[in-house]
Amino acid sequence: MKILVPVKRVADPDNANKMKVSPDGSRVTSDGLEWKLNPFDEYAVEAALRLNENGATGERLGEVIVVSIGAEDVQTTLRQPLAMGADRAILVKADDAEIDSLVVAKALKALVEAEKPDLVLMGKQAVDGDSNTAGQMLAELLGWPMATFAMSIHGEDGALRVGREVDTGVLTVKVTPPAVVTVDLRIVSPNGVKNGVTPDSHVYNEGARYASLKGIMAAKKKAIDVKSLADVGAADGAVVKYTKFELPPARSGQVKYVADVAELVNKLKTEAKAI
């Protein structure tokens, strides 16, 4: 299977509480924070690699192409999925301020039409904007079926059986490629992906794989094709326009350490009136 994996780089999500807003509220900045691959996209890369390999022998079964729409130096971030095992990359140069999910979906649509993958596998959400919209929009623009919030993907007879994490439990669908699948956290559990080739006896580690030293060396030689938004017909600009940013108000009051259960219950009853 040929798989396209759109990835975004984001400010280090484990330090998201260090994001800053300019005094006039016009800009949000991540000064001092490292750039990371959006965690859901890292999981999508892992899922794509699992779908396209025999996990026991390491034999490759198809191509995995990673694509990103972002600044020139996103090329550095793209080396990570290449080192994990993706074959090549495409960067569409854009300023983060000129893109929204609709622009991203339009750019990706053009890349899909050029590359003709069987599957687009992507994160369910970029954890900077927390929009959770690009995959669904791409599927619609392509006229493809989709399975969002995937926690499992099992290949069966040319179709994919996908377990979707929804509010009320697990919703299972069977989708016939070409399709868009967006992944949730648990796709990288040991049994998240089954491709019908990797023997059931093979157990994957929890989480995304680390790049080996060999992988890192190989990634340096892999191609990154650089394009512009105009090249992919997505230069119309964003329709979602941010006018102002603000930090959330701090929670009022300091934490009170209570000595024991009796004091806790007393405080909850008389002070907080919460029980």
Binding site: A11, P13, A16, N17, M19, V21, V28, V127, D128, G129, D130, V240, K241, Y242, T243, K244, F245, E246, L247, P248
Partner: peptide, 11 residues
């Protein structure tokens, strides 16, 4: 946005 660490106003 950013796991609830920033609020953005958008049109």
């Amino acid at each position: 946005m950013y796991a609830g660490n920033v609020f953005g106003w958008c049109a």
